[in-house]
């Protein structure tokens, strides 16, 4: 697919040379190609990998539950009912109640907002940051490369949990700071991959062709290199989301992430742990939710990787 496109692009240079002011067909050829094949790609993935189809369904369902939480449950997120503390699962409370008599299912639904957001938002931010820095390091080389990659080395040298703890300590708890922490933690690995992709693409014919007709550096980066890194980055995204969910839940589990009375799955496990022996569902239910979310994203990532970027399979 890519090779065909690249040939098309190289041939497009002839037009550009003849008429430099004419419309750029390069980028158009690109967008059309991508748009045409994306649906087909997804179809192929679902045919080849049933598990990833199911996972996508589960993820969509979770997102739907997150949005519809107020409609799906008669209880409020922080509604206390002290007469019904620590009730086991029943008809009224499908997943039981916690130490304040709050409905566990309700808190689970509202908690999924935080957990899914924490999975997606900082991962997206770290992808953008990491991809930009990594491509710059790979394309410009020299001191830009040295500075950026040394920074990445430092971030990656820390055991991730401890780095997260230090950053959270500096910033304080709360949702926004969790976003910031996860972004700062995760850009390094993205940058490494984007850099190595760039080094490979830099040598390719179509980048050389673009350079030879005087396309500016930044245009080459944004028009030619970044779009070609996209398949790899999309796969990396689906694999980084579950990692972010796990990190947030661990932070909240230690009491360093989301602060009460907000609900996140990790925080629910943390508060439920005090009642592990008389009300085990308090910690096991949100734990299971974390696991289902993580599994779904992992399966989806595996499926996407197989269709988008088989080279990554070996890593």
């Amino acid at each position: 697919m890519l090779r065909k496109k690249e040939k098309q692009i190289v041939s497009d240079f002839e037009h550009r040379k003849a008429d430099p002011a004419g419309p750029s067909e390069i980028s158009e050829a690109y967008d059309l190609g991508e748009a045409e094949t994306f649906g087909k790609l997804m179809l192929r993935m679902f045919r080849e990998n049933k598990l990833s189809a199911v996972s996508l369904l589960v993820i969509l369902l979770m997102i739907l539950c997150t949005i519809l939480a107020p409609v799906l449950t008669p209880y409020g997120e922080t509604d206390m009912d002290l007469l019904n503390r620590l009730q086991p699962p029943s008809g009224d409370h499908w997943l039981g109640t916690d130490e304040g008599g709050r409905d566990v299912l309700t808190r689970l639904l509202y908690g999924s907002r935080v957990s899914l957001m924490v999975g997606i938002v900082p991962t997206l931010l770290s992808m953008v940051l990491g991809a930009l820095l990594g491509v710059m390091a790979g394309y410009f080389g020299q001191w830009t490369d040295t500075v950026i990659m040394r920074l990445a080395d430092i971030v990656l040298a820390f055991p991730s949990m401890l780095l997260a703890m230090v950053i959270m300590y500096t910033l304080g708890g709360g949702l926004f700071n969790v976003f910031l922490t996860l972004t700062l933690m995760n850009w390094g690995s993205v940058a490494r991959i984007a850099r190595s992709e760039t080094l490979r693409l830099k040598k390719s014919e179509f980048v050389e062709a673009a350079r030879s007709i005087g396309v500016s550096k930044w245009k080459i980066i944004f028009r030619h290199i970044l779009p070609n890194c996209l398949p790899t980055l999309i796969v990396l995204f689906t694999l980084n989301v579950p990692a972010a969910i796990l990190t947030e839940s661990s932070l909240s589990f230690l009491g360093l992430g989301i602060q009460p009375p907000g609900a996140s799955w990790g925080l629910m496990v943390n508060t439920g742990r005090q009642f592990l022996y008389n009300a085990p569902w308090l910690s096991f239910v949100p734990s299971a939710a974390i696991m289902v979310a993580v599994l779904s994203f992992n399966f989806l990532g595996d499926g996407l990787r197989d269709v988008l970027d088989p080279r990554l399979r070996k890593q």
């Binding site: 661990s250 496990v269 734990s287």
Partner: peptide, 18 residues
């Protein structure tokens, strides 16, 4: 092994402990 990769460490720890 998939279970191990997708399970939060605290969940594995608490299930084993329980």
């Amino acid at each position: 092994s998939l279970l191990g990769i997708s399970m939060p460490v605290f969940m594995a720890a608490m299930i084993l402990q329980y």
